[in-house]
Design a protein around this nucleic acid. Sequence first.
DNA 1: TACGTAATTAAGCAAATACTTAAATAATTT
DNA 2: AAATTATTTAAGTATTTGCTTAATTACGTA
Lengths: 123, 123
Amino acid sequence: MKLEISCTRKEADHKQLSRCKETIQSSSSSFQEISKIFALAGSEVRLKILFLLNTEEELCPCDIADILGMSAPAVSQHIRKLKDAGVIRMRRDGQTLYYSLVKENTTVLNKALSTIDSNRKVA
Amino acid sequence: MKLEISCTRKEADHKQLSRCKETIQSSSSSFQEISKIFALAGSEVRLKILFLLNTEEELCPCDIADILGMSAPAVSQHIRKLKDAGVIRMRRDGQTLYYSLVKENTTVLNKALSTIDSNRKVA
DNA sequence: TACGTAATTAAGCAAATACTTAAATAATTT
DNA sequence: AAATTATTTAAGTATTTGCTTAATTACGTA
């Protein structure tokens, strides 16, 4: 990819373009982090898991697999992604692992989760 | 996939599980819609495009390609996804197409976009 | 009408995703 | 210690994604 200006139309506002470039570059890590969170919630299965953990406080993989009608390994692999991203945490009780939301890291998602909640009440 | 109960541990709260199943099923279309929006914003490139349209009101693909240092077709394909989802709209002025956010359909994303904004001010 | 620019669409391909089944870990029960 | 349960990890695979280059469409201008 060339880094030259591709847009050569007369009306192009070069001040605007350089301002935008700077902003994008200076917030580069924000975009990375936030898009990562969104990508996690961008899976229907993972969004459901997040929603469930939000309403039920904690659940084990077994419960989640049961609720979603999925295999244990499939659920486990989604859980792993959420855990690796620091979005959920784990506690062990005997053989059973309980997962819960790390609320500090999910503020961005709260609004969406509450949207689902209110939809449910309406529907 | 079998639909049987896979979780056979004694402690399992069957009332909780059926309540969860019902909720998940009754909000099924919400999960689909919202995860679709998140998946769109879950791409770093598309999140940047959304952010740019949020702050600049409208931009042409050419500008966006320039700002992000990407090829026109690459940008165009991201734009298509956003447009297909009804997240952005288009107006034509001669040869140039201007895209802008459909704010009504991006309320879920506003918080995230503003988060980036405030990060920028701090950094 | 022919040419150039803005943008999209199409085709091709490498990488990422999300399952599957099978094997491995870890704790509990017998 | 052996068997069972909860869970994860590994390996394999089909699908999706996101770019690339080439071709096409739409508009404006010489």
